[in-house]
Computed example of a mutant assay.
Amino acid sequence: MGALIEHARAKVNLTLRVVGRRVDGYHDLESMVAFADCADRLSLTVGSELHLVTTGPLAQACGETADNLVFKAAQLLRERVANLKVGSFTLDKVLPVAAGIGGGSADAAAALRLLARANNLAIDDSRLIEVARLTGADVPVCLESRACVMTGVGETLLPLALPIMPCVMVNPRIPVATRDVFQALGLRSGELLVGFADVIDAASWPETGASLEDWVEALAAGTNDLEAPATRIQPVIGGVIAALNATNGAWLARMSGSGATCFAVYENTAEAQRAAQQIQLDHPGWWVHAGTLS
């Protein structure tokens, strides 16, 4: 068998509401999630031993192999599936880390898809789903990598028919720890940010076949509750959003996840390409990607 290959697409939180903090310390969220056309590349050569090699422009940012979510997911699945075929993973890392786009989670999800293929496991195998949840809050949504509303601590997913959205994604190459952002949000255990009336008035998303303009209008009514605390930690996030808003044709600019990656949605890919070129020219040290969300 030759090497099996999967792509770990970047996750983008188009909206993110923090409903509250549970008594166990975890935060309940409601997020509209899409996936970008930029991705890490993960390959698996089936063998008797579990190995992971990282390559690519951002390989050095991946840290120790033992801490990598690819390795963690594979180990957890091996504990649950007898005689699981494993092997050597090679991760070509191009997405920035600690960036609010689920890079590590997408890598772990890609590893689970590869192991499922190598072992003839269904993608909805209960053991696969359990491992995804145990590996990280964003791993379940990355497992299928399709647009959806994600609620709870990431375990409940409602698929949505999202149109293709031309976009620009920008990261200032400054990592932001999710834990620090939630700490800056400052919720106590058991505290709610969203009351009963807010749940009743929750956003309803456009019907299947709705236009891009309709979707942007609906998204603009939302927010990312982590944007303000993340910006207090790294003020450059405000500068990234300002740079995106300053480009021609930007319909909506917002931070993704816990930052520092931000995105803007455009009417067409040509405008997105021109905007990305301008931002890259003005800020040569930033990571910039022009593409689509879906």
Rank of each mutant, 00 (worst) to 15 (best):
E49I: 08
A36V: 13
L77C: 02
A99W: 00
F35I: 12
P57V: 11
S31T: 14
L115A: 07
A39Y: 07
F89T: 13
H51T: 13
A61W: 03
A74S: 07
V70W: 00
A59K: 03
A111L: 02
P57M: 05
A106Q: 13
G100I: 08
L42A: 13
A98C: 05
V94S: 14
S105C: 06
A34G: 15
A99T: 05
A98P: 03
P96R: 08
V81R: 06
N120G: 14
A99L: 05
A99M: 05
V81P: 03
A74E: 00
D92P: 09
G87Q: 06
A36S: 15
A61N: 09
C38S: 05
D92V: 11
H51M: 06
A116M: 02
L52W: 09
V53T: 15
A108K: 12
D92Y: 14
I101H: 05
A116T: 02
K72C: 01
A39L: 02
N119V: 11
A39D: 08
E64W: 00
V70R: 00
N119C: 09
G104S: 08
D37T: 11
G100F: 01
K85Y: 03
L112S: 04
R78E: 08
K93L: 05
E30L: 08
A109Q: 07
N119L: 12
Q75H: 10
S48C: 00
T55L: 11
L112C: 02
N83G: 08
R80K: 08
A111G: 03
D40A: 04
A59V: 03
I101K: 04
V86K: 03
V86R: 04
Q75R: 15
F89S: 14
L77Q: 00
K72R: 15
L77K: 01
P96V: 10
D67Q: 12
N119Y: 12
E64Y: 01
A116I: 01
L44P: 13
G102C: 12
L44I: 09
R117N: 11
A111P: 00
A109T: 07
T54R: 15
L50H: 14
G87K: 08
V94K: 09
C62N: 08
L91H: 11
I101F: 02
K85I: 00
Q60V: 06
L58D: 05
S43C: 04
V86S: 11
G56P: 09
G47T: 01
N83F: 07
V97R: 09
L114Y: 11
A111V: 00
V46H: 02
A73M: 05
D28A: 04
G63E: 04
N119S: 11
L42C: 12
S48I: 02
S48M: 04
A108T: 06
L112M: 05
A74Q: 01
D92K: 10
L91V: 09
L52Q: 05
G87Y: 09
D107G: 14
A61K: 09
A106P: 10
V46L: 00
G56Y: 10
L115D: 03
R80D: 03
T90D: 12
N68F: 04
T54S: 15
R41W: 08
G100E: 09
G47P: 04
F35S: 12
L50P: 15
A99C: 02
G87W: 10
